[in-house]
Amino acid sequence: MIRNLFAALSGGIFGLGLVVSDMTNTSKVQGWLDVFGDWNPTLAFVLGGAVVPMFFAWIAARRMGRSALGSPLPQLPGPVVEPDIVIGSLMFGAGWGLSGLCPGPAIAVAGFGGWQAALFLVAMMAGMVATPGLRARLPRLSQA
């Protein structure tokens, strides 16, 4: 129960940060990706601002060895970069550039973004549901 409460709190604070930084405004996100046009550097401040507390959180987590609720820390992958990371990230980036939404903001706008936000979220969730099946049909990708 406490665990779910803190999960809801984390999600809520994440949502607050996304609207404060205006990452739910697709024209700012597309402006950041518009390197050859009217470039908007806001996203660099968002990512930079988010990385700093998290850098110290990782140090604290290593010292604690366990989470405050006693569960083990997440299992972290090694430095190996599978082709999946590159192929998937290029696909994700293409969708991000087209729409101006990545998964966090896509969920955060669900409650106030109208039918456009709802349709994007449904399509994104459909893609997530379809991915295990797609991976199975593309054996080279999943072996890689």
Partner: peptide, 20 residues
């Protein structure tokens, strides 16, 4: 952007340190 980023970082830190 910076203020929102710091809040996002706080959320990520909370989820890591409390929920693991």
């Amino acid at each position: 952007g910076l203020a929102g980023g710091l809040i996002i970082g706080a959320a990520a830190s909370l989820y890591l340190l409390v929920n693991g």
